[in-house]
Design a protein around this nucleic acid. Structure first.
Lengths: 195, 195, 195, 195
DNA sequence: GATGAATGAGGCTTCATTCAT
DNA sequence: CATGAATGAAGCCTCATTCAT
């Protein structure tokens, strides 16, 4: 019993650290954040971080895995019942929206992350891809794709979204790219897609 | 004569350092490259780098300025006489192609670079933007843009290209994204653009 | 308890570093001492010094502030109840005596120290000046000053003491100028002062 | 003949370097001056300094020897025919006056200089001491020294002068201590000396 | 389980000195 | 004789990681 209380306590601290690391990663950058920053932001001691995560790499991997899974889940949840491409694109942006600063960091830093974290990133992409292909196929008759493969349409959409996110300082200096430009992005992409 | 020989020597060393730094930046990342890496790669002593560049920041700025100018110039040169959008897109990729690994680093790291280097990056973007808008306007009658502003088309194109570059490990593990996918990118984008 | 033990530990280490730095400064010079010297002399790692003092400048400031305050306090304590000039001069030398090597470094290097450290130096001088003027005024009737202002007498005394300290290698090769010449200094200065 | 022209040229360059180093030492400090500073101030290449002086130490030694000799000579010249203590003290300050900034550096830095340079410093002191003792002896009957040995009087005088020089920032922020306070110093010292 | 002081490898920068031209 | 590019030892500082409490 006492044991389980301790374990619960420990689990709570770890969760708190993951949430704090997520916030610090979002604002300062994943690779640029120092372990001491995260400890301070979490209000725990420097050493406590290492009690829960053996290395900085492990911390990054867990945080990216955790929020990567959340984003992928949210994507699935929102995209599942989308019948039209418009719905899907909105769902995609909706899933990202709540995580925008962190997601943007992933867009920019995914290449430099530990392998496991890169895999989490790929999982997110796969989640979107899955539904995109499903809807694209279903709508193939209604969409004038002029022989462009679905994969390329997907890349165009992702490229457009990531371009806006990566250049957030330009498109939305206040820091909320999707809220500000989401509708425009969906609209323009659909106009291009349809005749 | 003697004087100019030594000056040439120094200029050569500096140029060699810029070229070496360019290569190291391309492969290891701009911010991740250490001064010692560059010195070793150039076959000079650690201190020599500081003889030619007062600080690491200055080195980054000069290298980005140098190759940024090259890329912008090449873009202008190739894009200048492009009458059609297809020619322009090919020209754009052609200009980037020779600098692909470095350009890709700029895509990913430009936000973290010193101000002067960020300006160089913006200059490159402006060069492309200039010609894109020129050609888009000229072709406006022939292109079915369905009410999409030129700026959005530009963003879509840049987003697509940068997406492929940033995910080069996926699209071209051997490291040459543009050579491998350039034609497809241009073709798909144009198909989408035209009826 | 456990907490306070560790805090005591840390405070002890910091105090130890200040004491060690004081010793190193005394023997090698304040500006000439390297951080690594102090770490080695204190038997701690290089990084530990930076745990307790953010910069070399901060270390110098703290050490000078600490021992400067000690010297000023001792000066006040010893000089407070001095009624005669002779008592005061002895008190002054007595206050300096225990800190002679360090004080001598301050005499020679104070101009080159960080601003905060220079202020500490000025505080020491002010402490002496204060009591000197008090006693000089009180004894003005008994002293034949022949129209020499108190400030000039003070400068003469300080000049004499600092001259002996600065030329310690000449006056006391074993390193203890005040113990060896203090009485003579006081005696001679008083003889000059009085008829 | 060509040889001797070259030699003359070399000797001139060396002299120029000594003069320049003297100026740089005076303004920036002897130990704080960098070889490159001196080369730049002299308008010669960095390497040229090493052509004339094997090491930084040698440069310091030669400069201090050169100007130390000048100061000692000037002291002798001015002090030689001084019959009274007042004349002598004025002569002493007169000899130092033209070299005040450099002399002040010697006051503060002599302990840290190479051995040979310290010897030059001692030579200057000896020159003053010699004449001081001579005049003091001659005037011994007229001066009320109250049993204070000549050496102690000498130290008092030197201490007073050096104290003013070392605290020049306080006594003469414009940088000319002797011109501003010389007369006062001589006057006060004499008043104290005589009944 | 939590703490935070201590560690030390690694990075940037300076500057006296050398040497090929 | 003069030059100045190149060298590399040495110094300051950062930060992930460890471990005694």
């Amino acid at each position: 019993m006492t044991e389980s209380k301790r374990q619960r306590q420990k689990a709570q601290t770890k969760e708190h650290l993951i949430e704090t690391a997520y916030a610090v990663f979002s604002s300062r950058g994943i690779m640029a954040a120092r372990m001491a920053d995260i400890a301070a932001a979490a209000g725990v001691s420097h050493g406590t971080v290492f009690l829960h995560f053996n290395t900085q790499e492990a911390l990054i991997e867990e945080v990216v895995a955790h929020y990567g899974a959340l984003i992928a889940l949210e994507t699935h949840a929102l995209a599942e019942r989308c019948g039209s491409m418009e719905e899907l694109l909105r769902a995609h942006l909706g899933a990202i929206s709540a995580y925008e600063p962190f997601y943007t960091r992933l867009v920019l830093e995914n290449r430099m992350l530990p392998t496991a974290a890169r895999d989490s990133w790929i999982d997110i992409q796969s989640a979107v891809s899955l539904h995109f292909n499903r809807v694209a196929e279903r709508e193939s008759s209604r969409i004038e794709k002029r022989g462009i493969p679905d994969a390329m349409l997907f890349n165009m959409w992702m490229g457009l979204v990531h371009y806006y996110l990566a250049n957030g300082g330009l498109f939305a200096p206040e820091g909320n790219v999707i809220r500000r430009h989401g509708t425009t992005l969906v609209g323009s992409f659909l106009k291009l897609l349809n005749g």
